[in-house]
């Protein structure tokens, strides 16, 4: 019988270390090549002139950042802020309300939960195309409903005041299921005894919700706000399909602006400047929200 060999000695340790490096190599190599190195390139080239087809190295100072002002880059940050605020608020509040509803022992609840999950997993391009016809002011189902209630039709996608809200409604519908699932998991974790004790203490309905359920679900709220915010900053596909950034730039989000500058106008310098700003904002939000999460989490477990 062979004697068991324990990993001791120099050769053994070297081999073990080599194994570690080989195991980590694919993830590290590809992350470096396709994420970390390109980020450095973006930050670096945001200070240089250039277009998509040439890689000239003429220092441009802050010219690319200055160009953001007249070419709508700063406006796109404002649009992104409005979109993010609208989407995160709607998706969080409606997500929690829907989860509370689905958490009730109502027959058919399971089937309704499926209706929340379907949009989440089907291609955004397909549902976004559906949105375009659904909100058509002449024959769309939404305006048919408005007319039924005697309300005037709305030019959802051609009126600059309504285009962004229409996209926000789309994203809320598309991604609501994710929040519903997370809230349902959070609600299931609140033990029955806590709720029963609250009822014994005379807390029912709204009072029970605000005094017992809401504080206990706050960690989930925080997680959802973080995920939704970071996703909102990246919004691209629905803008591309539903509005192409229009009308008159009213739905040009920061991510769509980067795409337009780089791949439609070939101004990669301006695109790099905006991409750098998006990175900086994401970084700040991630750091702030991680801190907030930790605090809320600590309180939730206390």
């Amino acid at each position: 019988m062979r004697r068991p060999s324990l990993p001791r000695g120099y050769g053994q340790r070297r081999r073990r270390q080599l194994f570690g490096y080989i195991m980590v190599l694919p993830t590290f190599g590809l992350t470096f090549l396709f994420t970390i190195f390109p980020l450095m390139e973006t930050l670096f080239r945001s200070f240089y002139t250039g277009n998509l087809f040439s890689s000239s190295h003429v220092f441009a100072g802050l010219a690319n950042y200055a160009a953001l002002v007249q070419s709508g880059g700063i406006a796109s940050l404002g649009t992104t802020a409005v979109y993010t605020l609208g989407f995160v608020t709607l998706a969080t509040v409606l997500g929690l309300l829907s989860a509370l509803l689905l958490n009730l022992p109502l027959p058919g609840g399971q089937a309704v939960r499926t209706l929340f999950i379907i949009p989440l997993v089907v291609p955004v391009v397909a549902t976004a195309i559906v949105w375009v016809t659904l909100f058509n002011p002449y024959f769309g189902a939404v305006d048919a409903l408005l007319r039924f209630f005697g309300l005037p039709s709305v030019n959802w996608l051609t009126d600059p005041r309504f285009a962004l809200p229409t996209v926000i409604m789309f994203s809320t519908w598309q991604y609501l299921g994710q929040n519903v699932i997370l809230f349902l998991a959070g609600l299931k974790a609140i033990s029955r005894e806590v709720l029963e004790q609250a009822s014994v203490d005379g807390a029912f309905g709204a009072a029970r919700f605000f005094r017992v359920t809401l504080p206990l679900i706050m960690p989930t709220v925080a997680v959802i706000v973080v995920i939704a915010t970071i996703n909102a900053l990246q919004t691209f596909t629905q803008i591309y399909v539903i509005t192409r950034g229009g009308p008159v730039g009213s739905t040009t989000t920061a991510a769509f602006y980067v795409y337009q500058q780089a791949f439609q106008f070939y101004n990669t310098g301006t695109a790099d400047a905006m991409a750098s700003i998006i990175f900086a904002i994401t970084l700040v939000i991630t750091v702030l929200e991680t801190r907030m999460l930790r605090r809320v989490g600590a309180e939730g477990h206390a």
């Binding site: 992350t31 090549l33 970390i36 980020l39 973006t42 990246q234 691209f236 990669t268 998006i278 990175f279």
Partner: peptide
């Protein structure tokens, strides 16, 4: 931590250099 940094980098921030690459 270098790999975790990749988690914080949105694709939008790197798409131009990635396409060039």
């Amino acid at each position: 931590y270098l790999i975790l940094m990749g988690l914080m980098i949105p694709f939008t921030a790197v798409m131009v250099p990635v396409v060039k690459l």
